[in-house]
Amino acid sequence: MNALLIILGLFKSPDVYHSTLTYGTLLLLPALGGVISERSGVVNIAMEGMMLTGAFFAVVADLAWHNVWLAVLVAIIAGGFMALIHAVVSIRYHADQIVSGVAINIVAAGLTVFLLNQFYGVQEIGSVAPQFLIPNIKVPVLDAIPFIGPIFFEQNLVVYIAIILLVAINIILFRTRLGLRLRAVGEHPSAADTAGINVYTLRYGAVIASGLLSGLAGAFLSIGLSNTFVPNMTDGRGYIALAAMIFGKWTPLGAFAACLIFGLGQAIYDNTSIIPISPYFLSMLPYILTLVVLAGLVGRSIPPAADGIPYEPGNE
């Protein structure tokens, strides 16, 4: 009871909303990647690994070149490269997409630490200096709005980018030719193929896009919210993003709403100093919530019809 009052008390300050948006965005990027990939018919549980790879290479590049933009670019490419492997294996070789996703996650966890040791020996990887981190941007004028300003207009650059991407991806997916084709490929690849749409190109594009977005999220994590790389630092966020995607019924806006819910959970968890509840219970909540959704207690969530089925032309 007391705990509940304390938690409710948190909502009086803009801080908790600010954190919710920040954490939500961190999940939103890979979740959007998942939406794009699965809408094209390729199951993607590898956002975790792509994000981790992005996080690692962002720090490596930033430490090497002292250029945050280059570092972000490298992270995005690294995420995209992992996605390319997933794409080649599951599209070109018709591999089981879950096995491939599991393998991506394992290889990312192993390779980042392996390379960490190979690159830096047993030295410390070191921390990125503050001026080489992804900056927080205060939007002039708007940030002065009481309450609203601190929540929305004093965020990290990536947060703004992610919101723009959210709007853009939503429009692309449901309003444009490209989006129509992408959805067609994910629902019925043979139909798309016979309509002269290149199924493989779209699927490759979609999977790689998911890697680029996850890579950006990784950079946000390691050189935005943090300043260094630590092994396995994504800590299941890619899986939470996967849950958010399902929660959001494979739509960008739905996924965003789910990300905000999970982000709120993290924001509340941060107040463990003043909340008299076992933090381990709080940590379990997002997962239990997802299970409840999956159990159909909060409305069913139906994936694209051809999600997870490798496309082989001429094979109806």
Partner: peptide
């Protein structure tokens, strides 16, 4: 080669 969740129009012009 039709996609049930799309409209008739979307199906026809696809591609």
């Amino acid at each position: 080669m039709l996609i049930p969740v799309l409209t008739v129009g979307e199906n026809i012009v696809l591609g």
